[in-house]
């Protein structure tokens, strides 16, 4: 029992890293633009399908394929922002953004169903179904590789945000849009690029998700509800909070599934959100008051 709990914790941390990557994209978009991208979940699935096509049709390795899928998803994100989200204005912008991205999500879902049907598929490679022994536990290679990829990309994201001029503009826009505009930041351009960036990091997460889970075009709903839970628990707009919340939640889910039952682990995931928000409406790591937003 103790060793299976240890394994659950390790699995939770490793998959939590991947969810952290996907949630980072979502929370970054929220922080800069004050909108929620409901389409993030289905974009993860879209990225997974792209990796699927590249690996099954062209025989490109999953990790090499990221060189194609990540830029592609960046372009998709930029187009969605430019075509739809930029055009929203006014008091109802937040609510509208949820509905618009929801609409984008169901369009992409419909297109994926037309193309791939609702049958479940899973990405395959040598490292997907092989494991190695560590401390008496079997760990699948893909979990470790996925975690390493997520860690590398999060580090890269950190470098972009804190070491480049663009990153400084992004952080300025996150702190205060109009002040950033006053000091010469092109907030519209920053918003578009941030949206693209937030979607692009998700593409990498989508590949690992597709390799560790069977998925179909409807998987986006489950994903987005988890990602939103993570982002809210982490305090919206806080990337560090999203990382902490992702690892915490995935570990919690895995441990519950071992000590209680896999049936109820997903429930615990959402119940944690409800309980935390009932006690602390700003989320686990939130500083800015979610109530006053």
């Amino acid at each position: 029992m103790a060793s299976s709990i240890l394994k659950a914790v390790i699995d939770g941390v490793l998959t939590g890293g991947v969810y952290a990557l996907m949630a980072a994209g979502l929370t970054l978009i929220f922080g800069v633009m004050d909108i929620i991208n409901i389409a993030q979940g289905v974009l993860v699935v879209l990225a997974a399908y792209l990796s699927y096509v590249l690996s099954t049709q062209l025989g490109i390795d999953l990790f090499v394929g990221l060189l194609i899928t990540v830029p592609t998803l960046f372009v998709v994100g930029v187009v969605v922002e430019w075509a739809f989200i930029r055009r929203l204005a006014g008091r109802e912008r937040t609510a509208m953004s949820i509905l618009v991205t929801y609409a984008v999500a169901i369009i992409i879902e419909g297109l994926l169903i037309r193309q791939f049907s609702t049958d479940y598929v899973q990405l395959n490679a040598w490292y997907v179904d092989r494991s190695f022994r560590l401390l008496g536990l079997y760990l699948p290679y893909i979990y470790v590789f996925g975690f390493a990829l997520a860690a590398a990309l999060l580090a890269a994201l950190y470098m972009v945000l804190y070491r480049t001029r663009f990153g400084r503009s992004v952080r300025a826009a996150m702190q205060d849009r109009s002040a950033a505009r006053l000091v010469g930041v092109n907030v519209e351009r920053v918003a578009t690029l941030t949206f693209g960036l937030g979607v692009a990091v998700t593409a990498a997460g989508g590949m690992v998700f597709g390799a560790t889970n069977a998925f179909n075009p409807n998987s986006g709903y489950d994903l987005i509800s988890r990602l939103l839970t993570i982002v809210i628990l982490g305090g919206m707009g806080s990337i560090g909070g999203a990382l902490g919340a992702a690892v915490f939640m995935l570990t919690l889910e895995d441990v519950v599934s071992v000590v209680w039952s896999p049936t109820w682990s997903t429930l615990v995931f959402f119940a944690a959100l409800v309980i935390v928000l009932s006690v602390k409406p700003t989320g686990l790591f939130g500083r800015a008051a979610a109530r006053a937003q």
Binding site: F30, I36, T94, A95, I98, S225, L228, T229, I232, M236, T263, W264, T266, L267, F270, A271, L273, V274, L277, S278, P281, A290, R291, A292, Q293
Partner: peptide, 28 residues
């Protein structure tokens, strides 16, 4: 009582989360 403690985005998301809790309950 739970959802209305929050506002705006958080409110929307918490209603979605509670929806998924009910769906899971009805499955299980």
């Amino acid at each position: 009582l739970i959802a209305l403690r929050t506002r705006r985005h958080t409110f929307v998301v918490i209603t979605i989360a509670i929806f998924f809790i009910f769906q899971l309950l009805s499955f299980n």
